[in-house]
Amino acid sequence: MSSPAIETTKPARGRTFGRVLEDHLPYLIIAPAILILLLVGLFPLVYSLIVSFQHITMTENDTSFAGLMNYAELFKDTRLWAALGHTAIITVIALPLELLIGFLMAQLFIDRMPGRQLFVALLVLPTVISPIVAGATWRLMFDVRFGPVGQILSFLAGEPVRILWTVNPAYVYPAIIICEVWQWSPFMFLLLLAALSNVDQSQLEAAELDGASYLRVLRAIILPAIAPVVAVACLIRGLDLVRIFDIIWALTEGGPGSMTETISLYTYIQGFSQFETSYTAAIAFLVIALLTVITTLVLKRMELAR
C-alpha cells in the first residue's frame, strides 16, 4: 500500500525542485560574475582598511592593531591638507571652464553643416589620448627654448618671451589648467551635444516665433532640458579632477616644491616613495570618505531638482 504513495510523491518533488531551480536560475548564472567583482573590488578595499589600522612601513612590518594612530596623524599633516587645497583649486577652476567651452562647442555644432562629423571626430581626439602622454606633450610645448607656445607668444609680442611655465609659481597653475581643459573639454562637448540634440525643437520654434531673445530661450528652455546631463557630466568630471595625477606628474611632478602636489600625487609619494603603507591606506580612506559625502550631497541635490 505504501509503494503507490511513494511513486506519486516523487514526481511532485521533482516538479518542485525544477521550479525552484527555474526561479533561481538567473541568480545562479550571475553569481560567478558577482563573486569575481567582489574579490577584485571588495577584497582590496577591506584589506586596505585593515592595513590602515596597522603600522606597516618600509622598515617595519608590524601587523598588530595600532588603533587610530594613522588617522590621528592625518589631522596633523599640513602637507596633506595643502594637497587637498591644491586639488580643490584645480577642480574649481578647470570644471567650469570645461563645461563652458564644451557648451559653446556643442552650440556651434548643433546645426547641420558640411563636414560636421569629421570636425566632431577631430575635436574629440584629445580625450582618447593618455593623460600622461598629454602632460608630456604639453611639457614639450611649454619648453622655454624650443616650445611652440613660447615662439608664438614671442611672435605676437614682437620680442622674445621666456616663460618658465612648469617652474615659475605664477604660471604653473595656468599650465596645468590649459592642459587639463584642452584634453577634457571635448568630453563635455560630446555629452552636451547629445543633450542639446534632444531638446524639444517645437518649443524652440515657438519661442522664436514669439520673438524671444537667445538668453531667454537659453534660460527658460535649453538649460532646464539639459540640466540632468550637465549634472551628471559635472559629477563625472569633478570626481575625475579630484583624483588628477597623470597630467601633473608629467608636467611638474608636484613642483615647484610641493606647490602643485594634489592628493593623488601625495598619496603616491607616501606609498611608493616613502613606503608608509599603513599611513597611505589611511589617506586613501580619508579621500573615499570625502568623495562619498560629496557624491551623496550632489545626488540628493539632483533628486531635489527633479
Rank of each mutant, 00 (worst) to 15 (best):
Q117Y: 12
F75I: 15
A106G: 06
A305V: 07
N70V: 02
A31D: 01
A157E: 10
M105D: 05
L74P: 05
L45Q: 08
W249Y: 15
R79F: 09
T262K: 01
L125T: 12
A136T: 12
Y266A: 01
P32R: 00
P256Y: 05
L290C: 10
T252R: 03
E22L: 09
S264P: 01
F109V: 09
V144A: 13
I288C: 09
M1G: 13
D62R: 07
A227W: 12
G14E: 12
E180W: 02
I101W: 04
I152E: 02
L299D: 02
V124A: 04
D210Y: 06
A195V: 09
I152A: 13
Y171I: 00
A94R: 00
M58K: 12
L104E: 10
W184K: 00
D210E: 15
N168V: 03
S197R: 13
G14L: 13
T292Q: 07
L28S: 00
L193Y: 07
V167D: 05
R79G: 14
I101N: 06
T166H: 06
I89M: 07
E303G: 08
L196Q: 11
I152H: 03
Q201G: 13
F146T: 14
I30F: 03
K10P: 07
R112I: 13
L39S: 06
Y27H: 09
A5Q: 12
E159Y: 14
S48T: 09
A281K: 01
G254Y: 04
T280K: 01
Q107N: 15
L99H: 06
L251W: 04
P44W: 04
C234G: 04
T78R: 14
P256M: 09
Y268V: 02
T292M: 11
F53M: 05
A170M: 10
F189S: 02
N70A: 08
L84P: 00
T8G: 04
P160H: 05
L196H: 12
F187V: 02
A194L: 12
A31R: 00
S48A: 15
E22F: 08
L84I: 12
I263H: 01
T9W: 12
S64I: 01
E253S: 15
L290Q: 05
P11E: 05
I152V: 15
L108I: 14
Q183E: 11
T137Y: 11
V229I: 15
M302S: 09
I163G: 02
D143C: 10
L204N: 08
T63R: 11
S278T: 03
R162T: 12
G257H: 07
L125P: 07
V242D: 00
V128T: 13
L156S: 06
I50V: 14
L196A: 11
P148E: 10
L223E: 08
Q183C: 06
L99M: 13
A83W: 01
